[in-house]
Amino acid sequence: MKITVEATVAAPIETVWRAWTTPAAIMQWNAASDDWHTTAASVDLQVGGAFSSRMEAKDGSMGFDFAGTYTKIVEHELIECQFGDRSLQVEFIAAADGVLVRETFDAEMTHSIEQQREGWQAILNQFASYVAAELGKKA
């Protein structure tokens, strides 16, 4: 089963793309809640290139790695990748008020569909907030 989440990011596509594909930026926004954080990230943004991020509870009680390989990249438009036996497609779509970021991914069997949708949506919302805050710092 595929799950889709999306958010509109009020920023130019170049800014959105950079925040999505830069390890230092990923470490700032890649968490579903304030009690988690990303402690490491790497990006080799090319077909066949690898990506990874280490997510950990801030209290040190648990953590996990999210890693995979890029399978298709269209700059400022699309990123597709594989992680384990699952796939992820991220679309960057021009919208009147910024960029619509749409993630479609294969569900896993450990958590409910709703838990997965909520978790991925929370991270995407964090991304949108991070980009908006970064633009505010530059204004």
Rank of each mutant, 00 (worst) to 15 (best):
I3C: 12
I3F: 09
I3K: 06
T4P: 11
E6N: 11
E6S: 14
E6M: 09
A7T: 12
A7C: 13
T8A: 08
T8Q: 06
V9H: 13
A10F: 02
A10M: 04
A10L: 03
P12L: 02
I13D: 08
E14C: 04
W17E: 11
A19Y: 03
A19Q: 02
T21F: 01
T21H: 04
P23Q: 14
I26R: 13
M27T: 10
M27I: 06
W29E: 07
W29G: 04
N30P: 06
A32F: 07
W36S: 06
W36V: 04
W36N: 05
T39R: 13
A40F: 13
A40Y: 10
S42W: 08
L45C: 03
V47P: 00
G48C: 01
F51Q: 05
S52I: 09
S52K: 03
R54G: 11
R54L: 15
M55L: 12
E56G: 03
E56H: 05
A57Q: 13
K58I: 14
G60N: 07
S61A: 14
S61V: 14
G63S: 06
D65P: 03
F66H: 04
A67K: 02
Y70Q: 00
Y70H: 02
T71W: 00
K72W: 02
V74H: 10
V74P: 01
V74F: 07
E75A: 12
E75G: 15
H76S: 08
E77T: 05
E80R: 00
E80T: 03
E80W: 01
C81V: 11
F83Y: 05
G84C: 12
G84Q: 06
D85H: 10
D85R: 06
R86W: 14
R86K: 08
L88Q: 07
Q89T: 08
V90H: 05
F92L: 05
I93V: 12
A95H: 10
A95W: 08
D97L: 07
G98D: 01
V99M: 01
V99G: 13
L100P: 09
L100E: 12
V101A: 02
R102W: 01
R102A: 06
R102Q: 09
E103V: 06
T104W: 00
D106C: 07
D106R: 09
D106T: 13
M109W: 15
M109T: 14
T110P: 04
T110W: 12
T110N: 08
E114Y: 08
R117F: 10
E118S: 02
E118C: 04
G119P: 09
G119V: 11
G119H: 11
W120N: 13
W120Q: 09
W120L: 08
A122S: 12
A122D: 11
A122L: 04
L124P: 02
L124M: 14
L124F: 10
F127A: 07
F127N: 04
A128Y: 04
A128I: 02
S129G: 12
V131W: 00
A132T: 11
A132H: 09
A132V: 13
A133N: 06
